[in-house]
């Protein structure tokens, strides 16, 4: 009786161990097949872009491609800055101070992607003199904040820094 029990226990252990080790192996095999779809090394290497901004006149903006998305770099005029700063935060669907959204108030750097469904908004359009998304009618102000329309949040600010007065490094 005792012997029989021992035998079954050992059998159970053997089978359990086989199943466990096998399951670990299958898990380990699956990972490369999943991970191969993540951004590869060459994509990650392009994660930063340096942009020369010395040629941009006040009031004008350029659009550069970063990680496959447009980034708006706008040199704002005094009046645009003032307008962005004086807004009452209580009026905003997504309250953010303009100062929180820029590093130098003259330069607005943001992802040019509507936070509704990913279209690219048009510059200098809309009821708030900022951007207007033609897809579903979202209005953004001169700080890229959502003011009216279906978009839930302000346009995103990417990670960036001023390398010097003429160059911005995005990413």
């Amino acid at each position: 009786m005792d012997k029989l029990e021992k035998k079954t226990n050992r059998r159970d252990f053997l089978f359990t161990a086989s199943y466990t080790v096998g399951a670990v192996g299958i898990g380990a095999v699956i990972w490369p097949f999943v991970d191969q779809m993540n951004p590869d090394r060459s994509v990650k290497a392009l994660a930063t872009t340096e942009v020369d901004i010395s040629q941009i006149e006040p009031g004008k903006s350029i659009t550069v491609l970063w990680r496959g998305k447009p980034v708006f770099i706008k040199r704002r005029t005094e009046s645009e800055i003032l307008e962005a700063q004086k807004v009452n935060l209580n009026e905003l669907p997504h309250p953010e101070k303009d100062e929180e959204r820029v590093k130098k108030s003259e330069w607005l750097v943001m992802l040019g992607v509507c936070t509704h469904l990913g279209c690219v908004p048009l510059a200098d359009k809309g009821e708030y003199k900022g951007w207007f998304c033609p897809c579903h009618g979202s209005h953004y102000d001169t700080s890229g904040r959502i003011r009216k329309g279906p978009a839930p949040t302000n346009m995103e600010i990417p990670k960036y820094e001023f390398v010097n007065n003429n160059t911005i490094k995005i990413g």
Partner: peptide, 13 residues
Amino acid sequence: EHIMRDVNYGWLL
């Protein structure tokens, strides 16, 4: 060669 060098586990696959 892109698969071999850059894609995650590309060389393995």
